[in-house]
Every structure is written in structure tokens, then in C-alpha cells.
Amino acid sequence: MSESSAVVQVRDLVKEHGHGESRVRAVDEVDLVVPEGQTLAVMGPSGCGKSTLLHLMGGLERPSRGEVWLAGQRIDGLSERALARMRRRSVGFVFQAFHLVEELSAVENVELPALLAGRSPRQARRRAGALLERVGLTARARHLPSQLSGGQRQRVAIARALANEPLVVLADEPTGNLDSAATLDVLRIFEELRSAGQTLVIVTHDERVAATADRLVSMRDGMFVDDTRLAGFHPRGLGGLIGLEG
């Protein structure tokens, strides 16, 4: 039952780097269930294993031990080829450094995953156009990444992550390279995805980004040290935030 309602599930997950004496556990026996439609933030200091966890969840790395399930399918034992197909179809990635193809325009970057997944060029272009509109970049569709600001590039990357209507969007420090205005733009888009029911996992060290999530887990030394539900609390009145009442 948990597998069917969970988009992502990991069990007893371990990832070790290095060998012998220098071996370190980046992820240390982690269990996690991300239900459909949840926005989950993973926070922790650099080196706590949060990015590794994200990579394991998206099939970018393989665990040393444990299980990774995506929409009821166990993926940690898949062949490279099957894993690549799964990533293309089911996972949207957003990275700190954007990772756009510099030679391609914004719209070409966004349509690329759809083309790779076998959609017709027309379908792919139509979808890319709609996604760029969603992130407010219709006017920049023909621009190369080098002609865009950091914030705009990240918005293109988010549109690209959505190209194949992924089961889950995995974002690794999505605002790490952005100023506060561009961060707000990205948070607005995440908020829109959240209300549209998109399952979203965001790894961040920025409390502000984490605070947009429904749920927050904190990591230290490869382990979860806290799991907090942020959403669904009765607002105590914004005035309480600045002592306006009374």
C-alpha cells in the first residue's frame, strides 16, 4: 500500500564513498516515503549527504545497500539503460548550476527531454512553449542561455524538468546561485507547482526555500535528525509576526 501511494520511497538506504580506512557513509540507513503531491525539503549543512540522497532517489547514483522505489517500481537494480529511460520519463532534475545546453536556445533546451522520450517535434515544441509561458519566459524563448540572467536560466531549467510531466521533480540547491529577487521567482514557480499537486523534493541549505515545503527533514552526517510538517497549521495571524496585535 505504501508503495502505491508513495511516489518515492527509500528503505534502509546506505551510500558509502571511498574504500577501507577512508570510507565514509554519505547516506546512513535512511528510510523515507514521499507521498504523491508532497513538497519535501531536505536541509542540512554541506557534506551532510543531502545531495547524495537526492541523486539516489533519482537514479543518478546507485546505493551501496537498501532499496529505492519510484511509483511502485524498484529502481536500484535496473540496468543502466532502463535506469536512463526511467529518469527521462519519470524524473525532472533541477540543479544549482542549471546544466543547460549552451548551444541551444531556451525553447530548444526545454523541448529536448520530450524529443529524447520519443515525442514528435511538433508536440515537443508545443509543450515547450507552454512551459516557458508557465515560467514567464515566452519572450526569451529564442535566447541562448548565455543571453539570460541566472534566474532566467534556472526558470528554463525548471521548465525543462517538467517537459515529460515527471512523477517527481528533484531539485538540488535550486537557488544556490541566485540573488534574492531571482530566488523569489523560483519560489513562486515552486509554489505554483505545489498547488498543482506536483511531487517535489528540494535539497537546500536555505531556510527560506525550505519554508515553502509542506514537510522538512533535516540531515546530519547521513542521517535524518528531524522530520517536521510545516503545512496545515492554523495561521496565528500575520500581525503576530511583528507584534502588531495588542
Binding site: 523569489l184 519560489l187 513562486r188 509554489e191 531556510e207 527560506r208 525550505a210 519554508a211 515553502t212 522538512l216 528531524d226 517536521t228 510545516l230 503545512a231 497549521f233 495561521p235 496565528r236 500575520l238 509576526l241
Partner: peptide, 20 residues
């Protein structure tokens, strides 16, 4: 500290949602 942190994060979320 953990309890205090949870409380502040919920307030941060509230303020953040209001900004958005």
C-alpha cells in the same frame, strides 16, 4: 532548540506564503 526551530520555520513559511 529543535522545537523552537520548528516553530520558527512554520512562521517563516507563513511570512513567505504571504510574500508570494
Amino acid at each position: 532548540i529543535a522545537a523552537q526551530r520548528r516553530e520558527l520555520l512554520r512562521r517563516l513559511r507563513e511570512a513567505q506564503q504571504a510574500i508570494l
